[in-house]
Design a protein around this nucleic acid. Structure first.
Lengths: 199, 199, 199, 199
DNA sequence: TATGAATGAGTATTCATTCAT
DNA sequence: GATGAATGAATACTCATTCAT
């Protein structure tokens, strides 16, 4: 399948993918400015010009990783919209599933999530979008009468984003809790609140 | 003969404070690596050696800003510990006050908060500390019977930190909401949950 | 297509060697602190980054030159140890040869000798080593009965080092005397002394 | 005697002398380029402008120290010229005394000797002068018939300078030998040579 | 597809020196 | 006689990027 005599048997695509994956790791661990092209190529076993064969610049490869995260997240949230007219009791489960999807995606794409959701300046934009999407979902639930009507759904959406952000970093990435676990605890808290129920 | 308007002979403390404040702004807006010593001194109207007269290095001035934030936050949270034995109905108010304190501090120290709570690597450490302190508070409330006992207070503490983080950035800093407002909405949500009350 | 005259793509080894040789000259003439990397690269017709392509730092290239001198001198003195059991009359000639070797080496490596034997702090260490080696040689001659036994051979070794040092600088480097000449005059003086022989 | 209210009771001359002495120490230990004006004044307990009150520049204070050494050595060697017509047997003693004078001077002025005889570029000039003076002495001895006539007295003078240099550094300064001791060993060696006397 | 060799442009830091008081 | 405050001028070193092959 491959051609004879290629160094390390790498097809172009392979080199490209390798660089991309190493870059993701570096960017995720060290951030944009601390990541050096020289380190990436060294780890990939190629030379600097090779890097520029596949990527226009350091910024370009960073963008590519960002976009990949951004697109993945968008695809995910697009299809997780709560469908109306479903009965009240299944609501928690449906929300839990949506959140679980997000956490699973983050968990399976740690490096790229670190870059796109935590380290980059553009992370702000992405979080903003996510918050908007969540807010829209919430509002439609309100219309269906699930939630209290006197709450600022934009605010709650932001709170959810902050929640996702923080728990991803402190519980999910370190492997302390599983996606489903985190999701259901969030849902429980947000739906019922913390107060002990008294007669 | 007065103290005003001198260039030469300006009180050293003044120059130092000026540099510190400009640096805070630069670091807050551009992050550590994009902030240039040359820019700071230019904006302060002094030369580079003057910078090194007051700060050992770029990193040192950054640390000083970080420490100032860190100390401010610590002082604040130290004294806001909920006191036991207070009646149930005042609980929301007391929590609200604690949160308001934090948001007010953040609001009055935007630049330094951006640095110490959002941009720096050490931000993680600070958030971790904050989460711990919140968790301790929550646990003592649990003992007093205020809250449900089946919840993971470490997790809720992290959620609160994420909440604070996110709302600071999206509601407080842009001036969309006031500290008290944000605090009370958070408390309302976390205590009661979102579900519409049905008999 | 040949190797000559290329600017771009010149063999890296060539660039490296050129920098090394120019650096030797600069260090020898101006000392460590007065030697500027910028001057070295300028004279070599390359840019500063090229310098750092081949040498880790200014200090590193200096060390390399030092080591090269140090090693050369060590190799030389290692094999010039006087062999025992040779007859008395050939002693002067053998010593002369040893000294001639040193002077020849110094003469053929002026710059690097200036650095390693005269200008650097490490020069002291190297001279110390040389003195020790000379002392050992002298002591074995004493055992063979060649020399007077009431002399402090450590002291004489140091005197010889001082002698070598001074004559290298004042007679050898300026081209006033040849290695052999200097060596034999030293031997004559040290063996016989200055007093006119009187019956 | 002094005026009231002077800081640390230092008269100008005292400050000057203090700076001079500390500078001597610094220059002697670290060399010209590694010695910082800021360190000197710090150790002297004064500010940088004070330094410039007494010395035109860093180079000027260095020169002053050099000159002091230079003059001291010159005064010494001026009067130590061997007088003619003295009997043959006292020659060794007279030479020994001359050398002892030099070593004593060096020993009593270590810092300034390090500067003027070892570290500075001008050291070469001074050594050259010393060698000339020694050569003149030797030549007049030759005329008196003390020494062998077939020797290059310029060369021997340089050898003596090298000897003085080396023994000062390795035996005198570390306190291993006393001035007289060193001097007499030198004289013994140079007058009689090393060969064991055989019938 | 890949590389050996080189560079443009920047960037923190240092140090001797000097006003104005 | 002395200082608080400031600076002009350098200098080593780094990094993304690009030819020519």
């Amino acid at each position: 399948m491959g051609k004879r005599g290629r160094k390390k048997g790498a097809s172009g695509e392979q080199s490209r993918a390798l660089l991309l994956s190493i870059a993701a790791e570096e960017f995720a661990n060290k951030g944009y400015y601390q990541t050096k092209v020289s380190t990436i190529v060294q780890r990939a076993g190629v030379t600097q010009p090779t890097f520029y064969l596949y990527f226009k610049s350091k910024e370009a490869i960073y963008q590519e990783l960002m976009d990949s995260f951004s697109k993945g997240l968008f695809d995910l949230t697009s299809k997780s919209r709560l469908e109306p007219g479903i009965d009240f009791n299944s609501l928690p489960l449906r929300i839990t599933k949506g959140l679980t999807g997000i956490f699973t995606f983050f968990s399976e794409n740690q490096n790229v999530t670190r870059i796109g959701f935590f380290n980059s300046l553009e992370a702000e934009v992405i979080k903003k979008q996510l918050a908007l999407q969540i807010r829209d979902n919430l509002i439609s639930e309100v219309k269906n009468g699930y939630f209290q009507t006197d709450m600022d759904m934009g605010l709650i959406a932001e709170i959810l984003v902050g929640t996702i952000e923080r728990l991803t970093l402190t519980k999910l990435f370190p492997g302390i809790k599983e996606p489903e676990e985190i999701a259901s605890e969030i849902v429980h808290l947000f739906l019922n609140g913390m107060l002990s129920k008294r007669e």
